[in-house]
Design a protein around this nucleic acid. Structure first.
Length: 784
DNA sequence: ACGGCTAACCATGGA
DNA sequence: GGTTAGCCGT
């Protein structure tokens, strides 16, 4: 008992010793949350709670592993269930599969599996993708599932046009998944939530068995997760959740901030504990994080403080371009290593999207610095790995149509698109899985004799593999590699690339199988292996990778900490991402994302942006992120790029207020200006729109001339002595110096992104132009 | 009819 | 830089 409750702050002890009844732990970054949670479990165990009465739900395996390791130290040998939401649901669904129309050997589709399933469903539903892309449809269906909306309900809701397309695909997609005895990621939660809702006896059993449920990162739960957790906490409402509204960054995955903001309303008898003292970062870093997050409205105000000693000022650095940024950061790391003040594992580099790691990777490699990229999709997404896993999937679940389609002709066995199409049509017509259809190929009239033979060959191969289904995994895997001649197929087809070695990846998969056999000598099953593979991410296992610099996205960085952190490309359209700028809630989520990045740093932090960045080949002028103007610059080291000052020559000497006014209050004389104001609104922090929110206003006044200059440059590009953008209409006649006269057939986008599709009268060709940049003239009908 | 190849086209985040 | 649709050679 002493070892468990000693050395805790009063707040921490409060949380640790609370056993019965709802508990809300609002835990700021670096506040020792994991410590509190594990100590609390240990305390509960010491007070006679049985380990099997406790379940701790997390979002990543890594978080669960971390908890398990720490608990093991406090209370060795106690089998408390700790794992991700998805794994928890997957395991429960194995037991209750028939209740939701599945068999217990059901498969879990990963993102690319669901994508192909979705494409097939869209085809089968016969909807046109001209107004809604497959991605949009998939996202609408995913959102529906996250909100526990059934296909029937979605069809009843006469929503927006895009949704009605999705509403038609949804039941077809769902039906096909059930036929394939498969679920997608959303279904794991969706099916289990509905199972609990529709079967009170199961709900009651679980509620009674799992008397103590804990949820980590509660701010990232969606409605389905909320429903699951609540359903299991009715008779025994000993629900303990931890979270931080300021670190909610998964809204795009359906996370609902209200779950945590309203927790006290859901459970009026809740005990709320706030962990506000930060043990991770220097005051310098914390101050920057705090100033930034104050600009959010939807939050629970929190005082972050630390007793840590002062450290270096946070650096805000400008580079000329992305390459200079990469080189300079690599140099900086090399320098700090040479100075003996740091080693590779001390450094992390965060970015908004994976594509941005490329130049960094190059810079680090050319200097011989060891690094690792934590990419959400890596090993298990590689072709050769997916191929072999598809074989395993099909062996485990003969209804797995996506797997069948992947491997029926891999290695090639003369079963092409035509044959596959006919097979699929037959399967659809008979409502049978495709493997079954292949067995009955002789019944398919349109199928050539030759194709029938090829299909028969495949089915025979499958049956040979199938006989090995219960063998140890390693044996099965080696057998199928042998039988399919997969290695020689790779040697034949794989192109030698610098950093990909398909055969080594196959070996790595075999090693994973060996390891799995070793870990599960008795309970090992193909099904369990496939489930594990489906539910791990590469993010989970970065730790083992040795002494390396870590590159990852801001999303992947959550829950981690590093002594020295670089956040790169803090630029408009990237952070905040351009697809999040239109909506205040999404914009706040972007701000939280930067907040998460900043608060990962223990001792040293640099935020950087470039003046120019090449995006997909072409070089763009960069507008620094609006978030940078929200930081306490007086307490930071602001460093501008050394060269290239004249790039923004016209604006470099402008004082700050003028340039801001330019963006803030463009004289609204005509349509174009109004148009741009609307768009620029999102570039302006909330505080500029709402005078009542004051604290940042003073800070933002310190915006450097350079930032102001580039902002002005952007507005120059937009407005000065150009035809007002609003003057362009669909049907407008225009003249282009190269293409000649034409007519605008379509206008899309706003502000700087305003884009026109133009059909030229000369050759009837259609081209698209960004109005702000294209050399277009409006012509009136008479002058042509 | 199949399969390999080239050429557009397209990209946020990820259990 | 990676993926896919469509083309062309077998």
């Amino acid at each position: 008992m002493d070892a468990i409750t000693n050395n805790l702050t009063p707040a921490q002890a409060d949380a640790v010793t609370h056993i019965d009844g709802p508990l809300l732990i609002i835990a700021g970054p670096g506040s020792g949350k994991t410590r509190v949670v594990t100590h609390r479990v240990a305390h509960m165990l010491s007070q006679g709670v049985q380990p099997w009465q406790i379940a701790a739900l997390t979002f990543t395996n890594k978080a669960a592993d971390e908890m398990r390791t720490r608990l093991e130290r406090l209370a060795p040998g106690q089998a408390v269930w700790m794992g991700t939401f998805h794994r928890f649901c997957a395991q429960q669904l194995r037991r209750y599969a028939p209740y939701v129309g599945l068999s217990e050997n059901y498969s879990i589709y990963d993102m690319s599996d669901s994508k192909s399933a979705m494409k097939r469903a869209i085809q089968a539903a016969g909807v046109s993708t001209s107004h809604a892309t497959p991605e949009q449809i998939a996202s609408a269906i995913s959102k529906a599932k996250n909100r526990l909306i059934t296909p029937e309900i979605m069809q009843q809701q006469t929503g927006r046009a895009g949704d009605s397309v999705a509403a038609r695909v949804y039941p077809v997609y769902q039906q096909q998944l059930l036929l394939a005895n498969a679920v997608d990621f959303d279904d794991l939660l969706y099916h289990f939530a509905r199972l609990l809702r529709e079967n009170p006896e199961i709900r009651g059993e679980l509620d009674a068995k799992l008397k103590y449920i804990m949820v980590d990162e509660y701010q990232d739960t969606n409605l389905a997760q909320y429903a699951i957790v609540r359903a299991m906490s009715v008779d025994h409402p000993n629900l303990a959740v931890t979270g931080d509204p300021d670190q909610s960054i998964y809204g795009w995955r359906g996370a609902d901030l209200n779950n945590i903001l309203d927790f006290e309303k859901d459970y009026p008898s809740v005990k709320t504990v706030r962990l506000e003292q930060n043990y991770r970062s220097t005051p310098n870093i914390l101050a920057v994080a705090d100033q930034l997050i104050r600009h959010n409205r939807r939050r629970k105000a929190k005082e972050l403080y630390t007793e840590n000693a002062d450290g270096d000022n946070v650096i805000l650095r400008q580079y000329d371009d992305g390459y200079q940024e990469a080189d300079a950061i690599a140099d900086e790391i090399a320098e700090q290593m040479m100075a003996g003040t740091a080693e590779p594992r001390d450094f992390a580099i965060f970015c908004r999207m994976n594509a941005l790691t490329r130049s960094l990777e190059h810079a680090l490699r050319s200097r011989g610095l060891p690094y690792q990229i934590i990419n959400g999709v890596e090993f298990y997404q590689r072709k050769e790995v997916k191929d072999l896993l598809a074989y395993l999937h099909l062996v485990n679940n003969p209804n797995h149509d996506v797997a069948l389609q992947r491997i029926i002709n891999t290695p090639t066995r003369s079963i092409g698109a035509t044959t596959l199409g006919r097979l699929q049509a037959f399967a659809d017509a008979q409502r049978i899985p495709m493997l079954e259809a292949a067995r009955r190929a002789s019944e398919i009239d349109s199928m050539s004799k030759r194709a029938q033979t090829m299909l028969w060959n495949f089915v025979t191969l499958y049956d040979r593999l199938r006989r090995m289904a219960t063998a140890p995994l390693e044996e099965l895997l080696r057998f199928l590699i042998e039988e399919t001649k997969y290695i020689s197929y790779l040697e034949r087809t794989a192109v030698e690339k610098e950093d990909s070695n398909p055969i080594a990846n196959v070996d790595e998969l075999v090693s994973a199988a060996v390891e799995f056999d070793r870990m599960h000598p008795d309970d090992g099953s193909l099904e369990a292996f496939l489930e594990q593979v489906a539910l791990v991410s590469d993010t989970d296992k970065f730790e083992d990778a040795g002494n390396r610099v870590t590159l990852m996205t801001l999303h992947a960085a959550k829950g981690l900490e590093f002594p020295r952190v670089f956040v790169i490309a803090v630029e408009d359209d990237l952070l905040p991402h351009y697809r999040s700028k239109q909506d205040d809630q999404q914009l706040e989520e972007e701000r939280r994302l930067l907040f998460v990045g900043i608060t990962r740093a223990q001792q040293w932090l640099q935020l950087s942006y470039a003046k120019r960045r090449s995006v997909r080949g072409d070089i763009r002028v960069v507008i620094p992120s609006m978030f940078l103007s929200e930081l306490p610059r007086a307490d930071m080291n602001v460093i501008e790029a050394r060269t290239d000052r004249d790039f923004f020559d016209d604006g470099a000497d402008e004082s700050y207020p003028d340039s801001w006014d330019l963006v803030q209050e463009p004289a609204p004389q005509d349509d174009a200006e109004k148009e741009y104001t609307g768009d620029a609104g999102s570039v302006i922090p909330d505080v500029y729109r709402d005078p009542s929110a004051s604290p940042a206003k003073v800070k933002a006044k310190r915006t450097t001339p350079t930032i102001a200059a580039s902002l002005q440059t952007a507005s120059d590009l937009m407005s000065s002595d150009r035809v007002p953008l609003g003057a362009y209409r669909e049907g407008s006649l225009v003249r282009h110096p190269e293409y000649g006269d034409g007519t605008i057939t379509e206008l899309t986008g706003r502000g700087p992104k305003r884009t026109a599709k133009i059909r030229f009268s000369d050759d009837q060709s259609e081209q698209t132009f960004r109005l702000a940049f294209a050399k277009l003239e409006l012509v009136d009908a008479e002058s042509r």
